[in-house]
Simulated assay, not measured.
Amino acid sequence: MSEITPDLVRHLGVLARIQLSDEEVTSLTSELDAIVDNIAKVAQVATPDVPATSHPIPMQNVFRPDEVAETLTTAQALQNAPDADGSRFRVTAILGEEE
């Protein structure tokens, strides 16, 4: 017996404030029913002895450790800038606000 009926889909549409045509109700009824069936299949095999996974292969942190090092001086950072104002990059305003 199907858990998802056209009346349920119409009710969900009302709750979500979505106006659904008859064709959409028919389509969504079969699609949602297939989704519920697939979730039920997964629930059957997802027993307590099967560990939960978020990824099919083991993952590990790929970041390197932070290391203190020399940083660029202001002059070095600005040396190739198309436009600079002393100690800052100068860029064109993009939000229409001139400061």
Score class of each variant (00 low, 15 high):
residue 73 T to P: 02
residue 58 P to G: 03
residue 11 H to G: 11
residue 27 S to Y: 12
residue 71 T to C: 11
residue 62 V to G: 14
residue 12 L to P: 06
residue 28 L to S: 01
residue 17 R to H: 00
residue 31 E to M: 01
residue 20 L to P: 05
residue 12 L to Y: 01
residue 39 I to C: 08
residue 48 P to D: 15
residue 97 E to Q: 02
residue 6 P to Y: 05
residue 15 L to D: 11
residue 53 T to F: 13
residue 44 Q to E: 15
residue 89 F to T: 02
residue 35 I to L: 15
residue 42 V to E: 10
residue 12 L to M: 14
residue 21 S to E: 08
residue 35 I to S: 05
residue 5 T to E: 07
residue 48 P to W: 13
residue 98 E to W: 03
residue 95 L to Y: 13
residue 89 F to P: 03
residue 92 T to W: 06
residue 50 V to Q: 10
residue 42 V to K: 06
residue 61 N to V: 09
residue 71 T to V: 12
residue 38 N to H: 13
residue 65 P to Q: 02
residue 94 I to V: 04
residue 20 L to M: 01
residue 16 A to Q: 10
residue 70 E to L: 12
residue 50 V to F: 08
residue 39 I to L: 14
residue 13 G to L: 06
residue 94 I to D: 01
residue 84 A to K: 13
residue 38 N to D: 13
residue 75 A to P: 06
residue 86 G to T: 11
residue 80 N to G: 00
residue 46 A to N: 12
residue 50 V to L: 14
residue 5 T to A: 07
residue 33 D to L: 02
residue 4 I to T: 01
residue 55 H to P: 04
residue 68 V to Y: 13
residue 44 Q to V: 00
residue 12 L to F: 06
residue 92 T to Q: 09
residue 47 T to L: 14
residue 2 S to M: 07
residue 26 T to R: 15
residue 93 A to I: 04
residue 59 M to C: 07
residue 95 L to C: 08
